[in-house]
């Protein structure tokens, strides 16, 4: 399973441009303490305004391109995370926000978490911090978008 199959080599320049200019995110809380969620919401708010880059938050997984997961994946959230990932249409990426989503952080070795999103689904970008600043989240999203472009230029 690959995180995104942009590398099929079928896309023209127009489509990769369009993809890089309008990544729509879907936010899913996989057992976070709401710290990272608040920071993500703050980066969508007027002060940081992610819509400058064409990024919109969508409610339905069918409309989204980027799954933004926050929190160590609890046993309860694992199946839902998998299901939401499977529901998204194909060129899709995953971002793990916060230390918990990256490695499980304080919950490492705990009996009821999976210690990071990448133990359940493939992750493209990790943003560390507890919680990461909105600047860090914006940087992570833009890094993801730039890497889409690089992957295609290599093809």
């Amino acid at each position: 399973m690959v995180a995104y199959d942009l590398a099929e080599g079928k896309e023209t320049g127009l489509i990769s441009w369009a993809r890089a200019k309008s990544p729509w995110i879907l936010h899913f809380n996989t057992g976070s303490c709401n710290g990272c969620d608040i920071e993500l919401v703050a980066s969508l708010s007027p002060r940081f305004d992610l819509e400058r880059f064409g990024i919109l938050q969508k409610g339905s997984p069918r409309h989204a391109d980027v799954l933004v997961a926050t929190g160590p994946v609890t046993r309860q959230a694992k199946n839902r995370l998998l299901r939401i990932y499977e529901q998204m249409p194909s060129p899709k990426s995953v971002i793990a926000i916060g230390s918990c989503a990256t490695s499980g952080a304080p919950f490492n070795g705990s009996y009821n978490v999976y210690e990071g999103v990448d133990n359940v689904i493939p992750v493209d970008v990790y943003i560390s911090g507890c919680p990461p600043k909105p600047e860090a989240i914006i940087h992570g999203l833009l890094t993801l978008i730039q890497n889409w472009g690089k992957k295609q230029r290599q093809q």
Partner: peptide, 8 residues
């Protein structure tokens, strides 16, 4: 951009 991205 939104339109072409969704088309693809």
């Amino acid at each position: 951009a939104d339109f072409f991205k969704l088309l693809a």
